[in-house]
Nucleic acid binder design. Structure first.
Lengths: 132, 132
DNA sequence: CAGAATCCCCCCTGATACTG
DNA sequence: CAGTATCAGGGGGGATTCTG
């Protein structure tokens, strides 16, 4: 959608838009679930795996690493055999809880409307496609 | 990460967690940018394409269709040749602006800390990998 | 226990070309 | 102008295996 020749500067870019910057952090499949699992305090690796339905070790580790890299989660290692590793939100990570809860609240109130809208939409447009 | 035999019910699942439900709506690459483009009122299809940096017609249409299906965006067609089509947020869509702004505010305040954390993290772990 | 490493597949996305 | 159709590439994510 570039306009060669005439150049109207687009004013909404992923790089600039704050919405996108944060989504770049939390829009992975498991990230918010991991943050959610940490909201009540430190928790061990294995316990997180059990709490989050359907997550694999690979994705749990990968998600935690990313959150660590972003400074939102801290890793605590107690050297022992076998080792004891727990994770917790950093102070920065905790500041993210508030906007996430707003999103959660929005969902509680409005999500049924979204589901209803989807059903209506699908019914409306299945009619035109139903016989192939 | 299933525990066959012993079954502790996991308490955090994508299906149940409100965080994930909403992200299911907004976590696409372009969705929030499209919503952002609509926050000041109705706007035509072509104008949106010009405003949102880097989006293709295909992704713009696809994103708008999804938002329409979710009941967050309305399409207005003025029959003419060539046709005039504009889009706007529905009342439901407008309710989403508030939590999104919270996210935007979080970004304004804290994103530099995330960037700093990333640089530190990368420096720390590049040291151990730098000579292959 | 807490990972790392590997293989593989699906789907999101981009580029291009065509249409009413 | 406002789309649709088709093809091709890359990366996120899953399943499995191995390790200190």
């Amino acid at each position: 959608m570039t306009t060669p020749g005439l150049k109207k500067t687009p004013d909404i870019s992923i790089a600039v838009c704050g919405y996108s910057k944060t989504l770049e952090i939390i829009s992975n499949k498991w990230t918010v679930l991991v943050i959610y699992a940490l909201e009540d305090g430190a928790i061990r690796y294995g316990e997180m795996g059990r709490r989050i339905d359907g997550i694999s070790k690979k994705m749990l580790t990968q998600t935690l690493r990313q959150l660590e890299r972003d400074g939102l989660v801290q890793r605590h290692l107690t050297p022992a055999i076998p080792p004891i590793v727990s994770y917790s939100l950093t102070p920065l990570g905790e500041t993210l809880l508030k906007p996430l809860r707003e999103l959660n609240d929005w969902t509680k109130v409005h999500y049924t409307q979204v589901e209803t809208a989807r059903q209506e939409y699908d019914q409306t447009y299945s009619a035109s496609t139903e016989n192939h």
